[in-house]
Simulated assay, not measured.
Amino acid sequence: MQSVTFFAALIAGVLVPLQAGANAALGRGLGHPLWATMISLAVSAICVVPVMLALRVSGPSIAGLADQPKWIWIGGIVGVVYITAALLLAPKLGAAIFMTAVIAGQILASLAIDYFGLVGFQAKPLTLPRLIGAAVVVAGVLVMQGPSLWRLTQSGT
């Protein structure tokens, strides 16, 4: 079962740079990146409704929302920031540089989230293998993108 879960995550990862490129093209077609963000999120909502209906997902229980931590609302904000950043930055940086920078940021933020037990995750220690793994990912990003990043800093982009 874990291999199926891993494969599903891998497929989801394959789709992310496609999303960035498609949203960037949508932004150009609509005349502004924020329209692309809005349309992308609307298409997401339109796509999830039939799935929810097919699965017979019951309506939400909003009565207990006031008792929940306030940070539960950041998901939508983060989604807007990410989609907008992707459609603005990916065309300038290229898919590989954009995605490796995103992945490095995700790894570093994930270590902090795990360590401090943020946003509902159980706290996990910063072990040497986890730190080495994160360092390898960040080093991989720097090695892979080093020459490109150097050109970007020299061109002032």
Rank of each mutant, 00 (worst) to 15 (best):
Q2R: 10
S3E: 10
S3V: 10
T5E: 07
F7V: 11
F7D: 07
F7W: 09
A8D: 04
A8S: 03
A8P: 01
A9P: 04
V14Y: 10
G21C: 07
A22S: 13
A24D: 00
A24W: 00
A25E: 03
L26K: 09
G27E: 06
R28L: 14
G29I: 04
G31I: 03
G31K: 08
G31F: 12
H32D: 06
L34S: 14
W35L: 15
W35K: 12
A36G: 15
M38Q: 11
M38R: 07
S40C: 14
A42M: 14
V43T: 01
S44C: 12
I46W: 02
V48H: 02
V48P: 01
P50K: 12
V51Y: 15
L53F: 11
A54Q: 13
V57M: 15
S58R: 15
S58D: 14
G59N: 12
S61I: 12
S61R: 10
I62R: 06
A63H: 14
D67N: 15
Q68T: 06
Q68I: 05
P69T: 10
P69M: 13
K70T: 08
K70V: 05
W71N: 00
I72S: 00
W73Y: 15
W73T: 12
I74S: 14
G75I: 08
G75D: 06
I77L: 15
V78I: 14
V78H: 02
V78Y: 09
V78P: 02
G79C: 11
V80R: 02
V81T: 13
I83N: 00
T84G: 04
T84E: 02
A86N: 01
A86G: 08
A86I: 09
L87A: 00
L88R: 13
L89N: 03
L89F: 09
L89G: 05
P91A: 07
L93A: 13
A95Q: 04
A96K: 11
A96F: 11
I97N: 03
F98Q: 00
M99W: 02
V102Q: 08
A104F: 01
A104S: 14
G105C: 10
G105K: 14
Q106N: 06
I107H: 07
I107R: 04
S110D: 06
L111H: 06
I113L: 11
I113D: 02
G117H: 07
L118S: 10
V119N: 03
V119C: 06
G120R: 13
G120A: 05
G120D: 07
F121W: 08
A123D: 00
A123H: 05
K124S: 12
K124R: 15
K124G: 00
P125S: 15
P125W: 08
L126H: 11
T127S: 15
T127Y: 07
P129C: 09
R130G: 08
L131Q: 06
I132E: 04
G133T: 11
A135H: 05
V141F: 15
V143D: 05
M144F: 14
G146C: 08
S148M: 13
S148C: 05
W150L: 12
W150D: 08
R151G: 05
Q154I: 11
Q154G: 07
T157F: 01
